[in-house]
């Protein structure tokens, strides 16, 4: 118990005995803080430092060489391409699903909500296998795809599909509670004022869900970059062709090219850090805007 927090108590004797109901003794507080900080240092900060140390251990040139060699560049390009395809797909899907769930009453709504959660529940490896069974050369649609000269498994479309599947819930999950809480009165008001459905969405719905949407996109983006298990199953790991950044790192690691593995890792980690920074910034902006917008 500290005396600083109690200076407003007039009687010093009382102050010495008086303690706030929710306040714990100093040793309890410091033990808890200590445990939390140690854990953070060991499991979050230390690995980050190890990655950076490993990446730059042999100098900037070696790091640059590792990320600019053709296979690494191909992996980076592929990862970014996948994100560019997957995020917009999930953006449209997320908004549509959240809209349907929040603004309309229909049969099977609980089923749709549980289905949206499914990608979180299924192991990524199983997700990969599902699509191999569907589209693989031995799979259900394999012969048909082969006959039409299309490749999904061991090619970019397969990677896009499994990552889109795995990251599907992020945006929808973020928007559903938000839109449910907001109800549909503002949209109805807009419609009675003569606005078309599209204008209502653009001028009323979108500004109301803006922050949730941005937040969902950031999370979706982070997960799409890092997805490993499902991609490992469907990509076939063809170097320079179907390796995404996480897969490329694993290949390098298995070939004992630790510095190169760490170099690409540092890039992926850097992207993650940027994502987290953007996320925090968005949260800060949202927080700052909220008091003005807040409750009735």
């Amino acid at each position: 118990m500290t005396t600083q927090t109690l200076t407003h108590v007039a009687n010093p004797e009382l102050a010495a005995r008086w303690r706030r109901a929710t306040e714990e003794p100093a040793w309890v507080r410091w033990t808890l803080i200590g445990v939390a900080l140690t854990f953070l240092a060991l499991f979050l900060v230390l690995p980050l430092l190890v990655v950076l140390y490993g990446a730059f251990e042999q100098g900037l040139q070696v790091w640059w060489a590792a990320i600019s060699e053709p296979d690494a560049l191909a992996a980076i390009r592929l990862s970014l391409l996948v994100v560019l395809i997957v995020v917009p797909i999930n953006l449209v899907f997320g908004v549509a699903a959240a809209w349907a769930i929040a603004k309309f009453e229909f049969r099977g709504k609980p089923i749709l909500i549980s289905l949206i959660d499914m990608p979180f529940a299924i192991s990524p490896v199983v997700v990969g296998l599902i699509f191999v069974i569907l589209f693989g050369s031995q799979g259900w649609l394999g012969p048909w795809l082969a006959a039409h000269d299309m490749r999904i498994i061991f090619a970019v479309p397969g990677i896009v599909i499994v990552i889109a599947f795995g990251t599907m819930p992020f945006i929808a999950r973020e928007l559903i509670p938000l839109m449910q809480q907001q109800g549909k009165e503002e949209e109805e008001a807009s419609l009675t004022l003569g606005a078309s459905g599209w204008k209502t969405f653009w001028y009323v719905t979108l500004p109301n869900i803006k922050w949730g949407l941005i937040y969902g996109v950031i999370l979706c983006n982070a997960r799409a970059l890092g997805e490993f298990g499902a991609v490992a199953v469907v990509s076939g790991r063809i170097r320079g062709e179907t390796n995404t950044m996480p897969l490329h790192i694993e290949v390098l690691y298995n070939e004992y090219m630790f510095t190169a593995a760490f170099a690409v890792s540092s890039l992926l980690t850097g992207l993650a850090l940027v994502t987290i920074a953007v996320k925090s910034f968005v949260e800060w902006l949202d927080e700052r805007n909220r008091p003005a917008i807040a409750s009735h």
Partner: peptide
């Protein structure tokens, strides 16, 4: 013209 119980003004 429709007026709602909870106003339904555009917050933003």
């Amino acid at each position: 013209g429709f007026v709602f119980q909870h106003y339904a003004l555009f917050k933003h």
